[in-house]
Computed example of a mutant assay.
Amino acid sequence: MTEPAPLPTVVSRVPPAWLVRVLALLCALVFIALPSLLLPAGDPVAVLLLDHHALPPPNSPFVYPFTIQNLMHLLLFAGFGELFVRWRVLRDESALLAAHLLPEDPRVVLQSHDLPAIRARVAGRHDGEQGVLPGLIDLCILQFQSSRSVDQVVSVLNSSLELIAHRVDLCYAMLRYLVWVIPTIGFTGTVIGIALALNLIDPSAGTQPLGEIAQALGVAFYTTLVALIESAILVLLLNLVQTREERVLNQAGHYTLVNLVNRLYAGH
């Protein structure tokens, strides 16, 4: 059987979560700082993206840079950081699929004496969290060596795939929360802006401060607009990455079934 090219271990290749979150926060601060420096206060784009007014809206509880929009930007980049981690995991798992860890010649039949070499090949490339394909191969070989039953190997493979699929789904829990909370904060900003606009109306006065009312309403609708756009971007990227990761998981299970489980021969 042809030996595959050696691969570095996948364990610990994914950057630590704390480092990704710090870098995401720094990117968000840069994203906020650049238009703040390049656009004058009161510019329509600065007002839309950052709620950066030349003069703060009357009675507004938000003082720049502590605005609803900037909070949503921070959450958006936090989501980007989580997506980056999943993308790195996806890239590593895809590389393992292309590593030819198992013999792929349809004429090959695997017997017990062939399995230790395959197990040694996948050693160090999985740790229970990363390296789905090597982990499945290792688990199936262990089960076959202990039971000599292909049926039990299939059962273990199916159970493992279900557990891994559930684990992958749990990895996206924070992203799903961010997708929900960003528009929620945007709608909260809308409610606050409308309430501020209503507080400016004085029924006893002969004339109303229409400019101030319009400014407060603009802030209200801008927060919802920015929230919906950012949420749509995050949902799109989340679905693209999660769909691809689930497809790689299915491919790992199929590869193990076709090139290992279906070729196991217990002998007599």
Results as ranks from 00 to 15, higher is better:
V168F: 12
N70W: 00
C171D: 12
Q143E: 14
L139H: 06
D105N: 15
G135H: 06
L133I: 07
I118E: 02
A173K: 10
L139Y: 01
F187S: 09
W180D: 12
R119K: 15
N70H: 00
L110H: 03
P106H: 06
C140G: 09
Y177R: 11
L74V: 14
L161W: 04
G124P: 01
H113T: 07
S146F: 00
L161P: 00
Q152S: 09
A99F: 08
L110R: 02
G79V: 02
Y64P: 00
L142D: 14
Q143D: 10
L170H: 12
I118H: 04
D169S: 12
F187Y: 13
S60K: 01
I137G: 02
M174R: 14
I118T: 05
R88N: 07
F144E: 04
V179T: 07
P103Y: 07
L157E: 05
L175N: 10
R86A: 13
R176D: 15
V132T: 15
R119E: 15
R148P: 00
S160A: 15
N158K: 14
P58N: 01
R88A: 08
R88Q: 14
L76C: 08
Y177L: 15
P183R: 07
T188D: 01
L90D: 04
T190I: 02
L74N: 02
L142Q: 11
S94C: 00
C171K: 12
V85F: 00
V63F: 04
S149D: 15
L142E: 12
R86D: 04
F66A: 13
L175S: 10
V150H: 01
Q145S: 14
V153L: 08
R88S: 06
V154D: 08
I185C: 04
R91C: 05
S149N: 12
E162Q: 14
